[in-house]
Design a binder for these strands. Structure first.
Lengths: 230, 230
DNA sequence: CGAAGAATTGAGTCACATCAAAGTTTGTGG
DNA sequence: CCACAAACTTTGATGTGACTCAATTCTTCG
């Protein structure tokens, strides 16, 4: 779409030879499975990684950049189920097909794994399978937390909680640039862009954050935390 | 907590014979693991199965009745994350503690399994671990579907979708008694009881369902389906 | 049978959506 | 590297779907 797509599965051999070992990026996910090597790949801003309904042939780990997964209704209403930041894995499915669409928010580097290989490794090694179980359980926890947010939280609480979550996943410094547009935030939080914008303005008025140009924000975590307290 | 808890003790033969056949969801779960036997147990209407924050020592399979899992905010707002009907497993957690509260909707029979035993079995058998992975992935899919419902659907769509889901999970006859109160439905769909009630009335007016006394409903599935179509 | 809880219905309100118009940032092509 | 159009964001005015408050009515169950 946006870039020429060199058909996935760029020569594993070369990738292998190139010296990709267990990702320097954090995870012992496939530890003990030297045959599961990810192939590096890049996506341009707004480029689709996979589409809803497509065969789920690969799974992905974000190395750099960010990816969103979403569902769309025929009338255009969209729900972003999750943002995937460096270190995160995404693309797992239960059935044959992807149930979401995945797109890069920005220039993004990933490692691509053949799903079949991962599943084979899981079938052979209880350790790998347990690791995958744990990953799925963690995603489930996030989805359930989102459920509480969407079902029972006000706009102010949603935005405050969202800012704190992104901060945490981005390193927890309290100062960062939001990697997504207002539309993406709105479609994740079940709001409109106008409400997100107004809410950010109000949070700034209330002294819960300061905004630099564009998507830059500095959080006053104490105040934000009080807004989402149970 | 609520009743004297006869520590899980095999009652093996009968539990095994009674419990382990076929519900589409995860019946073969512990196949090949004859040492993982559930202990039958019962809960009364509104009785707590476990509370948020408690140590997650057991997992459960519903045999009869229904269970809800939920989270509550300090001001009373509640989100029901899921209803668990016969055949369903619930109670899995990533960490040490339960992140939800679970309560029986009605007189409910379950099989109780020691979590440690299940995890040991998973660590030993890749087959069991893969089965658990699959179960978690399925729960994740349900949670993500709920996310779209809560984030982007109208009250009418939420209630219509909910009715069809319950129908399906209860056997798909189109005629059944809702096993939960309006409050439970409202707290699952992110609505108020009044809105749920009004919406049901409207669905009846529109000829999308008929109501018998109390919680009895008969669905006109075609019409309902059109209301939640993508 | 009677009381308590659950469900329905109605009237009025409010939080967030929608419509509209600037203002700001971005990134592309010259 | 700059200019400028397109995209994104903010802000304002108005609308509305769902909530709140309130009053019956219907079930359930002791």
């Amino acid at each position: 779409m946006t870039t020429e797509f060199t058909p996935p599965m760029p020569a594993p051999a070369s990738a292998h030879a190139a010296g990709l070992h267990a990702p320097a990026h954090g995870c012992a996910l496939f530890a003990g499975c030297p045959d599961i090597i990810g192939t590096p790949f890049s996506y341009a801003r707004e480029e689709e990684v996979y589409g809803e309904g497509e065969e789920a042939e690969f799974v992905y780990r974000v190395i750099e950049g960010a990816v969103r997964t979403h569902k769309v209704l025929s009338d255009g209403r969209r729900q972003i189920t999750g943002f995937h930041l460096p270190g995160d894995l995404f693309g797992f499915e239960q059935g044959l097909a992807h149930r979401h669409t995945a797109e890069a928010l920005a220039e993004t580097k990933v490692l691509i794994f053949r799903r079949r290989q991962v599943e084979l490794a899981a079938a052979r090694s209880a350790e790998v399978a347990c690791r995958l179980w744990d990953l799925a359980t963690n995603d489930l926890r996030l989805a359930q937390d989102l459920t509480l947010l969407l079902g029972r939280r006000s706009a102010l609480e949603r935005v405050a909680a969202f800012l704190m979550e992104v901060d945490e996943r981005l390193g927890g410094t309290g100062t960062f640039a939001l990697p997504m547009t207002r539309r993406d935030i709105a479609d994740h939080l079940g709001l409109t862009i106008e409400t997100v914008s107004r809410t950010l303005s109000q949070l700034e008025e209330d002294g819960a954050l300061v905004r630099g140009g564009g998507r830059q924000v500095g959080l006053r975590r104490g105040r934000l935390r009080r807004m989402v307290e149970d």
